[in-house]
Computed example of a mutant assay.
Amino acid sequence: MALAGCSDSETQDDASTIIRTTTNIAGAGVVGNNRDTVGLCPALAPLDPTGIEGDTRPVGHAEGISALPADPQRIVVLDAAGLDASCAVGIWERVVGAATIDPDFRGDGDQPLYLGTGLASVPSVGPVGAPDIDAIAALDPDLILGADLLGSNTYDELTTIAPTVFTATGQGWKDTFLQSAAALGRGQAGFEALASFSADAERVGREIDATQTQASVVRFDADSIEVDGPNSFAGQILAEVGVGRPQSQRDAAFSVETDDLSPVEGDIVYVRFAGPDGETFGREVMDGDAWHALGSVTDGRVFAVNDTVWSGSGVVAARAVLDDLSASLNAYVS
């Protein structure tokens, strides 16, 4: 299934170097394996005209208020939301380093392939959650963008290198995205990107008759099966498109045992894997009798999706999920 990319860019990244050939995993049809990332990140959005004081701009965030460069030139990003936002507002070419978001499926680079080869080749400054302070300092950034989950001690270390913003998480992916866009000096572009996405989500929902389908969303870890609740990133996108959820999946996320997979059932089931170990365990489960007893499996209505995208945060990832739904919600595995 081939999915389309979006707008033009000042620098076209060569997505032809990315090869995604898998079309079936343990009977599940693979969605998004031919995702087109050429021109995905748009041209640089205009700088926000308000709030500038000389060469800086005061920005409130999880750790207080910081004076940031009004138009940052050398950016280090430490979380998925910030990296996604850097693409969405067109400032990605100024990202000089980023925490490794997608360590297991990274191709030739260190960063997620869904953001295109330009960002995929950005050097790593350590994994998400454990940034390499010395590596960050060596890049001489003028802005560091991370999230509150890194904690105050890490924030204090980073501020000795460059002005640092930690976005406040917990209020949904849209709020986090807007905080990131504002820190990059392009909050208005962030609002416009979200408005455009919401309009497209509503349109796609009508086109695919989304309200008639209840979708189950499952993630295989190395030794467990997790079912997404409505507050997960994927759950929020499904709700905005209008896709329903099975009765058992309308509250919080939960785990299921391999000997009772009935809570996984849906009109359609989307599966994703947490790295190679998750895929190995997932294949074992999906080859078993309990899995094949599901009606969605019998009907050919199970699809494997990219874990980084469906576990992501940001409007670029949200659009990728939207494309996946458009391609698969009414499809069958042949």
Rank of each mutant, 00 (worst) to 15 (best):
G109Y: 04
S255T: 07
V241K: 04
S311W: 01
A252Y: 11
V309W: 00
T56N: 09
A162G: 06
A138F: 01
F105A: 05
S216K: 02
R245V: 08
F177W: 11
F105G: 04
D84H: 14
L150K: 05
G116E: 01
I19N: 12
D228Y: 10
G51N: 12
T211P: 14
A253F: 03
D228S: 12
R219H: 11
A2D: 10
A98Y: 00
S232Q: 14
P123E: 00
Y114F: 15
V204E: 05
V297P: 06
D79Y: 02
Q188L: 13
A331I: 11
V333R: 07
V30M: 10
D259Y: 08
R106Q: 09
S311V: 03
D156T: 15
Q212W: 13
Q247G: 09
L68I: 08
V76M: 02
D142Q: 02
G97L: 00
G51L: 14
V321G: 05
A318R: 03
A80T: 09
R301F: 03
L40N: 01
P127D: 08
T56S: 11
S311F: 02
F177A: 03
R283S: 10
T258V: 04
L40R: 03
G185T: 05
N330F: 03
D13N: 05
G27I: 03
G64L: 12
V31T: 04
R203V: 15
L294D: 09
D140P: 05
V302L: 03
D324L: 04
E257Q: 14
L329A: 02
T159W: 07
A45D: 00
T308E: 06
D8K: 15
V59H: 07
G244D: 06
G29M: 14
R283N: 03
H61M: 05
E10A: 09
P49T: 14
